[in-house]
């Protein structure tokens, strides 16, 4: 079970939270892992908060569900309030500090912060915020390596315009760079 990683993505609807999860899922599948992507559906889809849980494992995935993910990627304050207490002991917490105005209360967690919206705006790519944070996370944690993720960009964004793919790639790489310099 130690070879099984569960990552929670949470934020406002429209922040690209489900897409971040999907990206990681595709990339991990491309890297030969077993994966599942489980979205919270319902009221979340209709405005308000959104979240999804990605499970990555070397072996068969038993439960795609958990109460206590090992890692949480938090895009806004309500999501931190809701999920901080749920993360596994000594787990990893990644915070978008542009939209989270408090520090986490738990002391056992490995916390990484990044003012995602601010950096995305400075880059002129406000929609790339999710990819920025994802790039930084993968650089830091290696759940899937940055190289593996880059290999699958084309497949993941299949059907999208080349210019959009390029913008996402730029944001992703900026995130990778941020993690190298700051985390």
């Amino acid at each position: 079970m130690d070879s099984e990683k569960q990552v929670l993505f949470a934020g406002f609807g429209g922040q690209g939270v489900l897409s971040m999860g999907k990206f990681l899922t595709y990339a991990a599948m491309g890297a030969g892992k077993n994966v599942s992507w489980l979205p919270a559906y319902g009221a979340e889809m209709r405005g308000g908060t959104a979240n999804c849980l990605v499970t990555i494992a070397d072996d068969e995935i038993s439960s795609p569900l958990t109460e206590h993910p090992g890692m949480a990627i938090i895009m806004n304050r309500p999501s931190l309030d809701r999920f901080e207490g749920k993360i596994k002991k000594n787990g990893t917490l990644v915070i978008n500090s542009s939209l989270v105005d408090r520090l986490p209360q738990r002391e056992d967690l490995n916390v990484f912060q990044m003012p995602v919206n601010q950096i995305a705006d400075e880059m002129g790519s406000p929609k790339g915020a999710n990819m920025l944070l994802l790039g930084a996370c993968l650089q830091k944690t290696g759940v899937v390596t940055v190289e593996q993720a880059l290999e699958h960009f084309g497949i993941i964004f299949k059907g999208k315009k080349e210019s959009i793919i390029e913008k996402n790639r730029e944001a992703f790489l900026a995130g990778v760079q941020y993690a190298k310099e700051n985390w």
Binding site: K22, T25, M29, N34, V35, S36, W37, L38, P39, Y41, I61, P64, L65
Partner: peptide, 10 residues
Amino acid sequence: EGTLGQMMEP
């Protein structure tokens, strides 16, 4: 269950 309809797996 609805979850199984909504979730993705390979």
